[in-house]
Design a binder for these strands. Structure first.
Lengths: 218, 218
DNA sequence: GTAATAACTTAGATTTGTCTAACAAAATAT
DNA sequence: ATATTTTGTTAGACAAATCTAAGTTATTAC
């Protein structure tokens, strides 16, 4: 079994490598709030355990084994978040920190129970996919709201880079997953959008916000 | 905040000191599966933090502060066990190990939610009292089944020294908390008892078993 | 294409929790 | 009441995860 610390490194590698497939020492160091030499020696350690490909002066990449282990930790994290929201009444902005801790529990029974109580969900409360029992996950083909056109009608499917503050912001706008949204206008000078949904006829969202909202076209 | 390890020492001190009020190095060492010198240095460390009274060659005692901290950890453990049984459908023999892990989470919000969902329970699934928010707890005035007399009618109130195996044994006998029991006979030579409950008219329980069952007289 | 800057690595120290080996005190047994 | 055994303590080593300081390689700028 891996230590709490090792698990956090794996998870960060998995998340940061989402697009490029590799992660620099600097990036990982900043993300974890750990100095570079520390990151470096941990990468060597994980390389010995065949979880990471390590070559001097090159970015880090997870091995297949490492990707699986990381996926399983993220699976536990997201199942937990779903349970906290759906079965314990927490808000989607409250669950990240708790799940950060619960994801490290070693109890297959516990997470199987959660999975079964939830009915084997495929996504977490923020719309991110829950990796399967092999640690594999795949994103649906969502688009960023920011890439939609005036007149489009879309459904809010996921929130990315979802900090607690951002989620609280969405709460104040009554924006939830599944919300149907119509795009009324686009300000060219700053990329902000005017949208309508529910009883709101002209809510304005900045480009920053629109880039963090993934939607499904109707 | 205290480390995971420190918390386990505090909890063991609390549990082992239940009767005598003090714990020897040997006892603590065996209970934790840790060598005596390790225990010794940890006691000195906890003494510096004013959690333990330490004097050379004397048994250890928790300070008031230590007792409170320990009580709060045990509170988290027992609330968790209750939640696992009542809200997640685990058996009372399955929850100890999971709660051992969850008790170390740092999230007041999480445990308050559990407490509220459960309706502020006073006992855990094994009948042990749940310490209050100041870490204080008190046992009801239960008696050991072994100290009851033939003819007594009692209600099963708590199971002490409840290992998973012992709880599974009770499951096979369909003995649960709250079960009303009549004492039919007592074998003098080995202290075993013959009891009746439910549809069972003559179940025999060894002295060892009877000493681990706490009952309430009717 | 060299100089300056940024990123990465190595070396060595520190903290935490553990161990073994050796020694000291207390308890027990005769 | 002394010898033996048990219990507790000290000293020193070690692994994990971290740091700082110093050195090395890559990248960027001009």
């Amino acid at each position: 079994m891996h230590s709490f610390t090792e698990e956090n490194y794996l998870k960060s590698l998995f998340n940061l490598a989402a697009d490029k497939g590799e992660v620099s020492a600097k990036e990982l160091s900043e993300h974890l709030g750990t100095k570079m030499p520390t990151v470096n020696s941990m990468m060597k350690k994980l390389a010995e355990k065949k979880l990471v490909h390590y070559e001097s002066y090159k970015p880090f990449r997870l091995t297949e084994k490492g990707r699986k282990e990381a996926g399983l930790i993220i699976r536990k994290h997201r199942l937990t978040e779903m349970f906290l929201v759906q079965k314990m009444g927490f808000g989607w902005e409250e669950v990240h920190e708790i799940a950060e801790q619960i994801e490290h529990l070693h109890s297959p029974l516990f997470f199987e129970k959660i999975d079964s109580i939830l009915g084997y969900p495929k996504i977490d409360p923020h719309g991110s996919p829950i990796p399967d029992k092999n640690g594999k996950m795949e994103w649906m083909q969502y688009e960023k709201l920011s890439s939609c056109k005036v007149g489009d009608i879309v459904k809010l499917a996921a929130v990315i880079h979802s900090t607690d503050d951002f989620l609280k912001f969405l709460n104040t706008r009554e924006l939830q997953l599944g919300q149907k949204i119509k795009i009324k206008g686009l300000e060219k000078f700053d990329g902000s959008m005017v949208i309508s949904y529910n009883k709101k006829t002209a809510e304005s969202l900045s480009l920053t916000v629109c880039e963090r909202l993934l939607v499904e076209k109707q």
